[in-house]
Design a protein around this nucleic acid. Structure first.
Lengths: 314, 314
DNA sequence: TGAACTCATCGAAATTTGTCATGTGCGTGT
DNA sequence: ACACGCACATGACAAATTTCGATGAGTTCA
């Protein structure tokens, strides 16, 4: 509220009355309340700023404005102390309720139905999961949204995202590669596995059962294999099923995720470095501002049900 | 939200994407919701603007911005039709809830206790009502606020308001004198009354039982009496009780409100014009920006409990 | 028809918000 | 003790948004 009309009556008043005028115009910005919630959600001002698409200082300014309006501190600024003051905790509660009503009003009153197109990339293993059910429901709820899915390996999907051929993709990345804007759906550990009857010699190369060129973590394996001249690729196959068979046939050692370890396979670490852990994330193209996609990502995230325990982003 | 960071990615996009970007940044301003409520409360944009201390065009712009955010119309703009659309009615409901939470958050979190002074004027009949209870509670809740009340007749209080000797007063005014910023507490009708045994002659003056100089509507009666030479003042008294006794003693005709009509009194309209109706309002001095007074007025308004049915102003 | 009233729109002034650059404080490692 | 990295605060200013005053358009009433 920037009204000048009211201030015409203030001429000649003393400084106390000017302060009182400030207090009279107090209000809490919706977006500042949203920033406060994001600080709680993401664990700090800087990460909240990234998630909101603002600069760190804009978020800092917003909190400052809330604090001025309320004339109390909201963030605890002592090292090692709680992030929020008691007042900050109280306001977070109000913020949640206000934002809930606000967003509900936006959703229920807006007469623009979700429409548009979504070009979505999936890997084969995610394509065969509950995601199909999620997409089906989404289509039923939003008939005006055209969802086009392409199933590729993760490296291909990532290239397509970069080229703008996809709006979003569900891809595997190493955990250290998770970007702030990625939505982490779940995480997986990789293991070196072999059949119990396969003897690893103490010298010379280890026979490696490799996924093909398009497996994004195959390159990691080859890189460490070349560095130490440890691995020798003896088998290439693009499917996990093929690799599983080769392991069971004692043909060599493979790098597999928990999901693929079965039967008599044995996890081994002899002469091999600990593998990196993986994350399945929804990654969006840079040019992907699309309410329909926002809604779909929210559905996916909610349905996969991370239960708020895992960090959304690094 | 005016972020530039995100918009850097939009270069080269077509117009559809720009529209979608607007939708993505939708939000409902707190003050716009407050304006919508004020339009309902005051019966139009222009009156709402006065009450909010803004120009008419600022309020018009606010509604326009809400309509753009929601992509629907909120005000019915057909003559004779309802002021609000169905969507407008829905949003009013949300607005009430959001504003309630917002204002509650402001009140409960703000660490600046209400302080200051209130110079309040009352008429004798209002001083002897539940208002005393209201003031008592206000003092207990806000011990730092000094409330000083002066009991006078309405005309005197109005003069004191003009002179800045009072911050606010509860006064009687004719209904057509209600100002936009007055808070209407309740309304009263006046009636010409006489005892059934008093015969009004068909010619010559009517004996008039008059309140004294300080009764603000006495002047109205004398004015119309002089115009038509109808009334002859035969009795003057400053208290309603005295006037009631004189009526019952068949001394003449008096102008009384519903509250004072009792026993065998008879309402009459022979040869007399219909009296104006009255309103009891909280009227504030022009220089009365005072959070403590705001709070007190809200308490008074709420407690008198107009139940939202009556218009607050003209 | 003219007057009064209400609301919408335009151009520009006023105000608010966000960015960038920099400062400050804290924790960690050498 | 010092250097570095990280997180947040602050100042100056640009960009965006809101408000104002003037005016236009529409409606109602006498």
């Amino acid at each position: 509220m920037t009204g000048v009309v009211r201030d015409k009556f203030l001429s000649g008043e003393n400084d106390t009355d000017i302060v009182m005028n400030e207090l009279n115009s107090r209000r809490l910005e919706i977006d500042a309340l949203r920033a406060l919630s994001a600080i709680r959600q993401h664990g700090g001002i800087t990460r909240a700023a990234v998630a909101l698409g603002l600069s760190q200082s804009a978020v800092s300014h917003k909190i400052k404005r809330l604090e001025i309006s309320l004339d109390c501190e909201l963030l605890g600024r002592k090292s090692g102390g709680p992030m929020f003051t008691a007042a900050g905790e109280d306001l977070l509660d109000y913020a949640g309720r206000i934002l809930g009503l606000h967003d509900e009003a936006l959703l229920s009153l807006s007469k623009t139905p979700l429409a548009g197109r979504i070009a979505l990339g999936l890997t084969e293993d995610t394509a065969c999961t509950d995601l199909a059910r999620i997409f089906g429901r989404f289509r039923r709820l939003h008939p005006n949204v055209a969802v086009r899915t392409k199933v590729r390996m993760s490296l291909v999907l990532r290239a397509m995202l970069e080229r703008g051929e996809l709006d979003a993709a569900i891809v595997q990345v190493f955990s250290h590669e998770v970007r702030p804007k990625d939505v982490v759906l779940y995480r997986e550990d990789l293991h070196w596995v072999k059949h119990p009857e396969l003897m690893i010699r103490h010298d010379g190369p280890i026979p490696f059962l490799s996924f093909d060129d398009e497996c994004f973590y195959r390159q990691w394996a080859l890189d460490i294999g070349q560095e130490d001249a440890v691995l020798e690729t003896v088998f290439e196959c693009s499917s996990a099923a093929g690799i599983v068979s080769a392991v069971n046939a004692t043909m060599g050692v493979a790098l597999l995720s928990d999901r693929h370890i079965r039967g008599e396979m044995q996890i081994t670490t002899d002469r091999l470095p600990p593998p990196p852990s993986l994350a399945y994330v929804v990654r969006r193209a840079r040019k992907s501002r699309n309410p329909a996609l926002d809604c779909l990502v929210r559905e996916i995230e909610s349905d996969i049900g991370r239960q708020g325990g895992l960090a959304l982003a690094g």
